[in-house]
Simulated assay, not measured.
Amino acid sequence: MTDLLLDKVSFSYPDGTKALEDFSLSVRTGERVAIVGQNGAGKTTAVKLMNGLLKPTSGTVLVGDWDTRRYSTAQVSKKVGYVFQNPDDQIFHNDVESEVRFGPKNMKFDVKRVDELTRWAMDICGIAGFAEENPYNLPYSERKFVTIASVLAMDSDIIILDEPTAGQDKIGLKILGHLLDTLEQKGKTVITITHDMEFVTDYFQRIIVMATRQLVADDQANKIFYDAEILEKSMLKPPAVAQMAKMLDFPDGILSKQQLINAILQQRTGH
Protein backbone atom coordinates (compact mmCIF):
# COMPACT_ATOMS: atom_id res chain seq x y z
CA MET A 1 0.00 0.00 0.00
CA THR A 2 1.01 3.61 -0.47
CA ASP A 3 1.54 6.58 1.84
CA LEU A 4 1.29 10.14 0.52
CA LEU A 5 3.46 13.16 1.30
CA LEU A 6 3.39 16.77 0.13
CA ASP A 7 6.42 18.60 1.49
CA LYS A 8 6.45 22.43 1.31
CA VAL A 9 4.70 22.34 -2.05
CA SER A 10 3.88 25.46 -4.06
CA PHE A 11 2.29 25.69 -7.48
CA SER A 12 1.92 28.58 -9.93
CA TYR A 13 0.23 28.53 -13.32
CA PRO A 14 2.15 29.68 -16.42
CA ASP A 15 0.64 33.17 -16.18
CA GLY A 16 2.13 33.52 -12.69
CA THR A 17 -1.08 32.95 -10.74
CA LYS A 18 -0.29 31.27 -7.43
CA ALA A 19 -2.64 28.39 -6.58
CA LEU A 20 -0.80 26.80 -3.65
CA GLU A 21 1.88 28.09 -1.29
CA ASP A 22 4.18 26.15 1.05
CA PHE A 23 1.64 23.37 1.54
CA SER A 24 2.61 20.31 3.56
CA LEU A 25 0.49 17.24 4.21
CA SER A 26 1.16 13.64 5.14
CA VAL A 27 -1.52 10.97 4.70
CA ARG A 28 -1.06 7.44 6.00
CA THR A 29 -2.26 4.35 4.20
CA GLY A 30 -5.90 3.60 4.99
CA GLU A 31 -6.84 7.06 6.26
CA ARG A 32 -10.02 8.93 5.40
CA VAL A 33 -9.28 12.62 4.94
CA ALA A 34 -11.67 15.43 4.04
CA ILE A 35 -10.29 18.65 2.56
CA VAL A 36 -12.57 21.64 3.07
CA GLY A 37 -12.45 25.36 2.34
CA GLN A 38 -14.02 28.02 0.17
CA ASN A 39 -13.66 28.12 -3.62
CA GLY A 40 -10.18 29.34 -4.53
CA ALA A 41 -8.60 27.97 -1.36
CA GLY A 42 -6.35 25.62 -3.36
CA LYS A 43 -8.13 22.32 -2.70
CA THR A 44 -8.38 21.11 -6.30
CA THR A 45 -4.81 22.15 -7.06
CA ALA A 46 -3.63 20.17 -4.03
CA VAL A 47 -5.31 16.93 -5.12
CA LYS A 48 -4.26 17.33 -8.76
CA LEU A 49 -0.69 17.48 -7.47
CA MET A 50 -1.33 14.26 -5.55
CA ASN A 51 -2.19 12.26 -8.67
CA GLY A 52 0.30 13.87 -11.02
CA LEU A 53 -2.10 15.95 -13.11
CA LEU A 54 0.01 18.91 -11.96
CA LYS A 55 3.69 18.99 -11.02
CA PRO A 56 4.86 21.21 -8.15
CA THR A 57 6.59 24.50 -8.92
CA SER A 58 8.59 23.90 -5.76
CA GLY A 59 8.59 21.33 -3.00
CA THR A 60 8.07 17.59 -3.32
CA VAL A 61 5.09 15.28 -3.80
CA LEU A 62 5.77 11.65 -2.91
CA VAL A 63 3.37 8.81 -3.63
CA GLY A 64 5.02 6.01 -1.73
CA ASP A 65 8.64 6.36 -2.85
CA TRP A 66 7.67 7.95 -6.17
CA ASP A 67 8.49 11.61 -6.73
CA THR A 68 5.63 12.63 -9.03
CA ARG A 69 7.92 14.88 -11.10
CA ARG A 70 9.75 11.78 -12.30
CA TYR A 71 6.65 9.92 -13.44
CA SER A 72 3.92 10.55 -15.98
CA THR A 73 0.35 11.28 -14.98
CA ALA A 74 -0.67 7.88 -16.37
CA GLN A 75 1.87 6.15 -14.15
CA VAL A 76 0.86 8.04 -11.00
CA SER A 77 -2.84 7.46 -11.70
CA LYS A 78 -2.26 3.73 -11.20
CA LYS A 79 -1.52 4.52 -7.56
CA VAL A 80 -3.81 7.55 -7.10
CA GLY A 81 -7.26 7.44 -8.69
CA TYR A 82 -9.04 10.77 -9.12
CA VAL A 83 -12.80 11.18 -9.62
CA PHE A 84 -13.49 14.57 -11.18
CA GLN A 85 -16.14 16.89 -9.75
CA ASN A 86 -18.04 16.94 -13.03
CA PRO A 87 -18.64 13.43 -14.41
CA ASP A 88 -19.03 14.83 -17.92
CA ASP A 89 -15.32 15.72 -17.84
CA GLN A 90 -14.46 12.06 -17.35
CA ILE A 91 -16.93 9.89 -19.28
CA PHE A 92 -16.02 8.99 -22.86
CA HIS A 93 -17.61 5.59 -23.61
CA ASN A 94 -21.05 4.87 -25.03
CA ASP A 95 -22.10 2.37 -22.38
CA VAL A 96 -21.58 2.14 -18.64
CA GLU A 97 -19.79 -1.21 -18.53
CA SER A 98 -17.23 -0.16 -21.15
CA GLU A 99 -16.56 3.02 -19.15
CA VAL A 100 -15.93 1.08 -15.95
CA ARG A 101 -13.97 -1.68 -17.69
CA PHE A 102 -11.60 0.69 -19.49
CA GLY A 103 -9.35 1.46 -16.49
CA PRO A 104 -8.46 -2.06 -15.35
CA LYS A 105 -8.21 -3.23 -18.98
CA ASN A 106 -5.83 -0.37 -19.78
CA MET A 107 -3.72 -1.36 -16.77
CA LYS A 108 -3.16 -4.75 -18.40
CA PHE A 109 -4.88 -6.79 -15.69
CA ASP A 110 -5.77 -10.32 -16.78
CA VAL A 111 -9.28 -10.86 -18.12
CA LYS A 112 -10.55 -12.55 -14.96
CA ARG A 113 -9.42 -9.69 -12.75
CA VAL A 114 -10.83 -7.08 -15.14
CA ASP A 115 -14.19 -8.86 -14.98
CA GLU A 116 -14.10 -9.13 -11.19
CA LEU A 117 -13.11 -5.50 -10.63
CA THR A 118 -15.68 -4.24 -13.13
CA ARG A 119 -18.52 -6.19 -11.52
CA TRP A 120 -17.44 -5.24 -7.99
CA ALA A 121 -17.16 -1.53 -8.79
CA MET A 122 -20.52 -1.44 -10.54
CA ASP A 123 -22.21 -3.34 -7.72
CA ILE A 124 -20.84 -1.20 -4.91
CA CYS A 125 -21.82 1.97 -6.78
CA GLY A 126 -25.34 0.69 -7.43
CA ILE A 127 -25.10 0.91 -11.23
CA ALA A 128 -24.97 -2.77 -12.20
CA GLY A 129 -28.45 -2.47 -13.68
CA PHE A 130 -27.26 0.23 -16.09
CA ALA A 131 -24.42 -1.78 -17.67
CA GLU A 132 -25.64 -1.36 -21.25
CA GLU A 133 -26.96 2.19 -20.86
CA ASN A 134 -25.27 5.20 -22.42
CA PRO A 135 -23.95 7.14 -19.39
CA TYR A 136 -25.30 10.38 -20.83
CA ASN A 137 -28.82 8.94 -20.70
CA LEU A 138 -28.49 8.67 -16.91
CA PRO A 139 -29.23 11.47 -14.44
CA TYR A 140 -26.32 13.44 -13.00
CA SER A 141 -26.24 11.49 -9.74
CA GLU A 142 -25.93 8.16 -11.57
CA ARG A 143 -23.29 9.52 -13.95
CA LYS A 144 -21.35 10.50 -10.84
CA PHE A 145 -21.38 6.90 -9.70
CA VAL A 146 -20.29 5.73 -13.15
CA THR A 147 -17.11 7.81 -12.81
CA ILE A 148 -16.57 6.65 -9.24
CA ALA A 149 -16.90 3.02 -10.35
CA SER A 150 -14.49 3.58 -13.24
CA VAL A 151 -11.82 4.73 -10.79
CA LEU A 152 -12.54 2.07 -8.16
CA ALA A 153 -12.17 -0.62 -10.83
CA MET A 154 -8.54 0.42 -11.28
CA ASP A 155 -7.88 -0.79 -7.71
CA SER A 156 -5.65 2.19 -6.89
CA ASP A 157 -4.24 2.45 -3.36
CA ILE A 158 -5.44 6.06 -2.99
CA ILE A 159 -8.86 7.30 -4.11
CA ILE A 160 -9.62 11.03 -4.47
CA LEU A 161 -13.29 12.05 -4.64
CA ASP A 162 -14.02 15.62 -5.73
CA GLU A 163 -17.44 16.77 -4.41
CA PRO A 164 -18.93 13.24 -4.37
CA THR A 165 -22.21 14.32 -2.71
CA ALA A 166 -23.11 16.87 -5.40
CA GLY A 167 -26.52 16.00 -6.83
CA GLN A 168 -27.02 13.02 -4.52
CA ASP A 169 -30.22 12.17 -2.66
CA LYS A 170 -30.49 10.08 0.53
CA ILE A 171 -30.04 6.84 -1.39
CA GLY A 172 -26.91 8.16 -3.08
CA LEU A 173 -25.50 9.34 0.25
CA LYS A 174 -26.15 5.90 1.74
CA ILE A 175 -24.30 4.26 -1.16
CA LEU A 176 -21.38 6.65 -0.64
CA GLY A 177 -21.26 5.84 3.06
CA HIS A 178 -21.20 2.10 2.40
CA LEU A 179 -18.56 2.64 -0.28
CA LEU A 180 -16.31 4.53 2.16
CA ASP A 181 -16.66 1.81 4.78
CA THR A 182 -15.82 -0.88 2.23
CA LEU A 183 -12.75 0.97 0.97
CA GLU A 184 -11.55 1.35 4.56
CA GLN A 185 -11.95 -2.39 5.11
CA LYS A 186 -9.86 -2.97 1.98
CA GLY A 187 -7.11 -0.71 3.35
CA LYS A 188 -7.62 2.02 0.74
CA THR A 189 -6.83 5.66 1.43
CA VAL A 190 -9.70 8.05 0.65
CA ILE A 191 -9.29 11.80 0.22
CA THR A 192 -12.39 13.89 -0.38
CA ILE A 193 -12.91 17.51 -1.39
CA THR A 194 -16.33 18.66 -0.31
CA HIS A 195 -18.49 21.61 0.72
CA ASP A 196 -20.94 19.24 2.45
CA MET A 197 -20.14 19.60 6.14
CA GLU A 198 -22.76 17.05 7.20
CA PHE A 199 -21.07 14.47 4.96
CA VAL A 200 -17.74 15.39 6.53
CA THR A 201 -18.95 14.94 10.10
CA ASP A 202 -20.77 11.68 9.29
CA TYR A 203 -17.86 9.93 7.57
CA PHE A 204 -14.53 11.65 8.28
CA GLN A 205 -12.50 12.16 11.43
CA ARG A 206 -9.50 13.96 9.99
CA ILE A 207 -10.24 17.33 8.43
CA ILE A 208 -7.83 19.48 6.42
CA VAL A 209 -8.95 23.12 6.28
CA MET A 210 -7.56 25.33 3.52
CA ALA A 211 -7.76 29.08 2.91
CA THR A 212 -5.87 31.48 0.66
CA ARG A 213 -3.86 28.66 -0.93
CA GLN A 214 -2.52 27.39 2.39
CA LEU A 215 -3.26 24.84 5.09
CA VAL A 216 -5.12 26.47 7.98
CA ALA A 217 -5.84 23.45 10.20
CA ASP A 218 -5.43 19.68 10.38
CA ASP A 219 -7.52 18.13 13.15
CA GLN A 220 -10.57 16.09 14.10
CA ALA A 221 -14.03 17.26 13.08
CA ASN A 222 -15.23 17.79 16.66
CA LYS A 223 -12.42 20.31 17.17
CA ILE A 224 -12.41 22.00 13.74
CA PHE A 225 -16.10 22.88 13.80
CA TYR A 226 -15.94 24.38 17.29
CA ASP A 227 -12.89 26.55 16.67
CA ALA A 228 -14.17 30.06 15.94
CA GLU A 229 -10.80 31.30 14.71
CA ILE A 230 -10.44 28.51 12.13
CA LEU A 231 -14.03 28.91 10.94
CA GLU A 232 -13.62 32.67 10.53
CA LYS A 233 -10.31 32.40 8.71
CA SER A 234 -11.62 29.78 6.29
CA MET A 235 -15.14 31.28 6.04
CA LEU A 236 -16.66 27.88 6.80
CA LYS A 237 -20.04 27.28 8.38
CA PRO A 238 -20.22 24.35 10.82
CA PRO A 239 -22.84 21.65 10.19
CA ALA A 240 -26.40 22.40 11.30
CA VAL A 241 -26.18 20.13 14.35
CA ALA A 242 -23.11 21.99 15.64
CA GLN A 243 -24.81 25.34 15.05
CA MET A 244 -27.86 24.21 17.01
CA ALA A 245 -25.75 22.81 19.84
CA LYS A 246 -23.95 26.13 20.08
CA MET A 247 -27.25 28.02 20.22
CA LEU A 248 -28.42 25.75 23.06
CA ASP A 249 -25.14 26.36 24.89
CA PHE A 250 -24.22 22.67 24.96
CA PRO A 251 -20.60 21.55 25.43
CA ASP A 252 -18.32 21.69 22.38
CA GLY A 253 -17.90 18.61 20.23
CA ILE A 254 -21.49 17.68 19.37
CA LEU A 255 -21.72 16.80 15.67
CA SER A 256 -24.30 14.05 15.21
CA LYS A 257 -28.06 14.17 15.62
CA GLN A 258 -27.87 11.42 18.23
CA GLN A 259 -25.31 13.38 20.26
CA LEU A 260 -27.62 16.40 20.15
CA ILE A 261 -30.64 14.33 21.21
CA ASN A 262 -28.64 12.84 24.08
CA ALA A 263 -27.59 16.30 25.24
CA ILE A 264 -31.19 17.54 25.16
CA LEU A 265 -32.42 14.51 27.13
CA GLN A 266 -29.62 14.91 29.64
CA GLN A 267 -30.51 18.57 30.11
CA ARG A 268 -34.18 17.74 30.68
CA THR A 269 -33.62 14.87 33.09
CA GLY A 270 -30.57 16.29 34.82
CA HIS A 271 -28.59 13.09 34.25
Results as ranks from 00 to 15, higher is better:
residue 1 M to V: 12
residue 4 L to Q: 02
residue 5 L to W: 08
residue 7 D to L: 12
residue 11 F to V: 08
residue 16 G to R: 06
residue 17 T to Y: 11
residue 18 K to A: 14
residue 18 K to Y: 04
residue 21 E to Q: 13
residue 22 D to I: 07
residue 22 D to A: 08
residue 28 R to N: 15
residue 31 E to T: 05
residue 35 I to Y: 06
residue 35 I to E: 06
residue 35 I to T: 04
residue 38 Q to H: 13
residue 43 K to N: 05
residue 47 V to S: 01
residue 49 L to W: 01
residue 50 M to F: 00
residue 51 N to A: 00
residue 52 G to R: 02
residue 52 G to S: 03
residue 52 G to W: 07
residue 53 L to S: 05
residue 56 P to I: 10
residue 59 G to P: 09
residue 59 G to M: 07
residue 59 G to K: 09
residue 60 T to F: 10
residue 63 V to W: 05
residue 64 G to A: 04
residue 66 W to Y: 14
residue 66 W to T: 11
residue 67 D to C: 08
residue 67 D to K: 07
residue 68 T to P: 06
residue 71 Y to M: 11
residue 73 T to V: 13
residue 77 S to V: 07
residue 78 K to I: 10
residue 81 G to C: 08
residue 82 Y to D: 04
residue 82 Y to S: 04
residue 83 V to H: 01
residue 86 N to K: 02
residue 86 N to I: 03
residue 97 E to R: 14
residue 97 E to P: 08
residue 101 R to T: 14
residue 106 N to D: 06
residue 106 N to H: 10
residue 110 D to Y: 09
residue 114 V to M: 10
residue 120 W to L: 01
residue 120 W to N: 00
residue 120 W to I: 00
residue 122 M to V: 01
residue 124 I to R: 08
residue 125 C to L: 03
residue 126 G to I: 02
residue 127 I to C: 00
residue 127 I to A: 00
residue 129 G to I: 05
residue 131 A to E: 13
residue 134 N to I: 00
residue 139 P to E: 01
residue 139 P to H: 00
residue 143 R to N: 02
residue 146 V to W: 03
residue 146 V to P: 02
residue 150 S to T: 01
residue 153 A to P: 06
residue 153 A to E: 08
residue 156 S to W: 02
residue 159 I to D: 10
residue 164 P to Q: 03
residue 165 T to N: 03
residue 166 A to H: 08
residue 170 K to Y: 13
residue 172 G to S: 05
residue 177 G to R: 05
residue 177 G to Q: 04
residue 178 H to N: 15
residue 185 Q to T: 13
residue 191 I to F: 06
residue 194 T to D: 04
residue 195 H to W: 04
residue 210 M to P: 01
residue 211 A to M: 00
residue 214 Q to M: 12
residue 223 K to R: 15
residue 223 K to I: 11
residue 225 F to R: 03
residue 233 K to C: 09
residue 235 M to K: 15
residue 237 K to E: 15
residue 241 V to I: 14
residue 243 Q to D: 02
residue 243 Q to R: 13
residue 245 A to K: 06
residue 247 M to H: 13
residue 250 F to V: 08
residue 258 Q to D: 15
residue 259 Q to T: 11
residue 262 N to L: 12
residue 263 A to M: 07
residue 266 Q to R: 15
residue 270 G to Y: 06
